[in-house]
Amino acid sequence: MKKIKLIIWIAVLVLLESMGYARIFGAVPALTFAFLVCVALNDDDFYTAAVTGGICGMLAGSLLGRSFSFIFIFYTISAAAVYTFRKKPRYTHAIFKAVFWCGLLTAVMELALFALETGSISLFALYSIALPSVLYNIAAALVIYPLIMRTVYNEEKQRKLIT
């Protein structure tokens, strides 16, 4: 059931992202990226997180017109990395971790893409490309996180509490 919900979420987010329905001031945040970060932080299964990252990367790379290979690898590795470090630091609410990971990884992704395209990294790339993307994706994560908690992981957490 959880996997079906995740697939539905991915499909909806990919459509929203690729069709530009989630515009903020004319730019579309990487909804699938924010989603995979939230999933990797909350899921207990490594492969679910990694495969979610891989699927999101594959779809985003295919439909959003960016470097397929880079997006595919980056999304999957990001999911694996976030999953690996999801419990650090301890006693910190996962939404803060989602904001942190989303911001950090988005900045790395945008700068890396800029470097791949232009062969250099500049302050322009940092302020004009990476920073807005970071803010957009953090905003997306703040919206997506509570939604997937309610729709996907709520039952799982309740079951854990009972057992």
Binding site: F46, A50, F68, T76, A81, T84
Partner: peptide, 24 residues
């Protein structure tokens, strides 16, 4: 932790291979 790192390493390798294959 090493279990996760091992899994992550395998994932990275698999993804890299798939990506490389697709690139080729």
């Amino acid at each position: 932790m090493s279990f996760f790192k091992k899994k992550a390493g395998v994932t990275v390798i698999v993804v890299a291979v798939i990506a490389a294959l697709l690139t080729v």
